[in-house]
Design a protein around this nucleic acid. Structure first.
Length: 161
DNA sequence: ATACTACGAACCT
DNA sequence: AGGTTCGTAGTAT
């Protein structure tokens, strides 16, 4: 099953689900119509600027590699408007050299926004990459109140602050 | 076995 | 400030 929420003129959020459990969340630029899906009200609130917690949404991770799941589960606890960096997650997983593997996992994040990979930036303050483009990452972060100038965050709260 | 990466540190200019 | 290089772990092919 597939649902969609119109974000603006050319952008939809698409949510795929199975028996009320979400299997995929992503942006689409060619959807045409809105359709209901689990958690739609939460996303509506989120895109109207409200502070939203997606922690209770049910996600299907059964076909996702073990390491990826560990990264995603950790990240689910990163609150709205906070940021962290790839190395911090790696350290949390027990090895600071995992930072690159963490990036690799986030690149394939099937649950856009629900797993807040947009809140992970580089250690030096640069935005880092995003599977739907850096601009979208900046847009999401700004919506959550993170100040960004020249593709660099300059006012923010860390996860642990 | 090899290639790839949404990274980081340590070097260069 | 900006670049290159290399180490690195986990996945994909």
């Amino acid at each position: 099953m597939k649902g969609a929420l119109r974000i603006d003129n050319n952008k939809f959020l698409v949510v795929e689900f199975e028996k009320g459990v979400i299997t995929k969340v992503y942006f689409s630029f060619k959807e045409k119509i809105e359709k209901d899906f689990p958690g739609k009200d939460l996303f509506l609130d989120y895109f109207s600027g409200k502070i939203v917690d997606f922690k209770d949404l049910k996600l299907d991770m059964k076909d996702i590699p073990r390491f990826f799941v560990k990264v995603y589960q950790l990240l689910r606890n990163l609150p709205y408007g906070r940021i962290t960096n790839y190395e911090s997650i790696a350290i949390e997983l027990g090895n600071k050299n995992l930072s690159r593997a963490v990036g690799n996992a986030l690149r394939r994040n099937p649950f856009l926004i629900v797993i807040p990979c947009h809140r992970v930036v580089k250690k030096d303050g640069n935005i880092g990459n995003f599977s739907f483009g850096k601009d979208l990452k900046i847009w999401l972060l700004r919506m959550e109140g993170v100040m960004i100038e020249n593709e660099k965050v300059y006012s923010f709260r860390h996860w642990w602050d």
